[in-house]
Computed example of a mutant assay.
Amino acid sequence: MPRVRELEVFRLVLPYGRRPESILVRLTEYGGMTGWGEVVDGDPKTWVALEEGLARALVGVDWEHPDELGTVPGGPAADMACWDLWARMRGVPLAHALGGSRTSLMATVRIGAERNLDSLVSRVNRHVCAGYAHVTLDIHPGWDVEPLRAVRHAYPVLGIGVDARGAYTDVGALEVLDAYSISSIERPFAGPAGLADHADLQERVAAPVLLEVSSLADLDEAIAANAGRALLLRPAALGSLREARRMHDRAVQAGWEIACAGGQGTGLARAATVAAASLPGCGLPCDVAEPPRSAQIVTPPVGVSGGVVAVPLTQPGLGHRIDEDRVRRLAKESYSA
């Protein structure tokens, strides 16, 4: 039975991009075993919630399984740490603890809009040469048919998905993309667009419309409206891995496909995404592109090799060793209880 003796929380400013903030939670049980979790979040309220409520919720409290804990203060970082600790204590990989069965995952790489078509095709070429069998093209009105046509002409059998990032209001503008044998149309509409627009698009195209929803209730509503045929599952954006698993199960029950994505930061959140992506319904290519090595605190690094992501199954828990010295060097702030 896990019983947390001590917890530590670290706030890191990561050395890349827009220097996002990452919060790490380290739990230590009475036998000395540890579990780690992470959330990429710059909201001061998250830090306050952890500082004010996490010790009261976990330290000295007996529990049999992470599902018993409900919503832990501080959200996904603390929940992930509980799952990691629980799996380590039982000597099982987190993927198996969640019910995963895959040993490897096909990866996709996201490719943003380029200056011109030649630059786009060259960039796709670099990733194909690195072993990727699938790419996801960012599109928006004015940059959609032509780039998709150029990539499909250069790579007739390459798996290609498109991510609209909610940029469209016209169903017809997306319908024409279906002629290029795309694997999915991700996040087509945003703002005032409702499920009816998504359902209209799904009725017109063969490719699954890939929806991102924030709760099980929203997923149920989308399924009832026939608003798509695929779920974009981001475990790091949900409150718990239990919620991610429940959404997976509901999507599978409805006959939907699933793509896992997300979890930036130091590699811990991405490791949890990989574990969730090993669930049997997650058959679409996953997006767990490797964070810069300058930011990773895990060994081996979480990333892609030859277009494939290995699910770590030889070590318990998240399956990665944590460089605690590096965590403390990168920490901008920390506390323990």
Rank of each mutant, 00 (worst) to 15 (best):
E203Y: 10
R204L: 12
A206P: 03
A206C: 15
A207D: 10
A207R: 06
P208H: 03
V209C: 11
E212D: 10
V213Q: 04
S215F: 08
L216T: 11
L216S: 07
A217I: 05
L219S: 10
L219C: 13
E221N: 12
I223G: 03
N226K: 14
A227C: 09
A227M: 14
A227N: 06
G228W: 00
R229F: 05
A230V: 04
L233P: 01
L233V: 12
R234H: 11
A236I: 05
L238Q: 06
L238Y: 01
L238K: 04
G239A: 15
G239S: 14
G239Y: 08
L241I: 03
L241C: 11
L241E: 07
R242M: 06
E243W: 09
E243H: 09
E243D: 11
A244Q: 10
R246D: 13
R250H: 10
V252T: 07
V252M: 06
Q253C: 11
A254V: 02
G255I: 10
E257Y: 09
I258S: 01
A259S: 14
A261Y: 10
A261E: 15
G262C: 10
G262P: 02
G263P: 02
Q264V: 13
G265C: 14
T266H: 05
T266L: 08
L268M: 14
L268P: 00
A271W: 02
A272M: 08
A272L: 10
A275I: 01
A275G: 12
A276I: 15
A276G: 11
A276N: 07
A276S: 10
A277Y: 03
S278K: 00
S278R: 00
S278F: 00
S278Y: 00
L279W: 03
L279N: 04
P280L: 07
G281F: 01
L284G: 01
L284F: 03
P285V: 09
P285C: 09
C286P: 00
D287G: 06
V288I: 14
A289W: 02
P291S: 07
P291T: 04
P292E: 11
P292Y: 04
R293M: 12
S294G: 05
S294A: 15
Q296S: 10
Q296G: 03
I297L: 15
I297N: 00
V298H: 01
P300A: 06
G303E: 12
S305M: 13
V309L: 09
A310H: 01
A310E: 14
V311E: 00
V311K: 01
V311S: 01
V311M: 09
V311T: 09
P312Q: 07
L313C: 05
T314K: 04
Q315R: 07
Q315M: 06
P316W: 01
P316Y: 03
P316A: 13
P316I: 13
G319W: 06
G319V: 08
R321L: 14
R321W: 03
R321H: 09
R321F: 02
I322S: 05
I322H: 11
D323C: 08
E324P: 02
E324R: 01
D325W: 05
R326C: 02
R328C: 11
R329F: 04
R329D: 09
L330D: 09
A331H: 05
A331C: 15
K332V: 13
E333Y: 05
S334I: 11
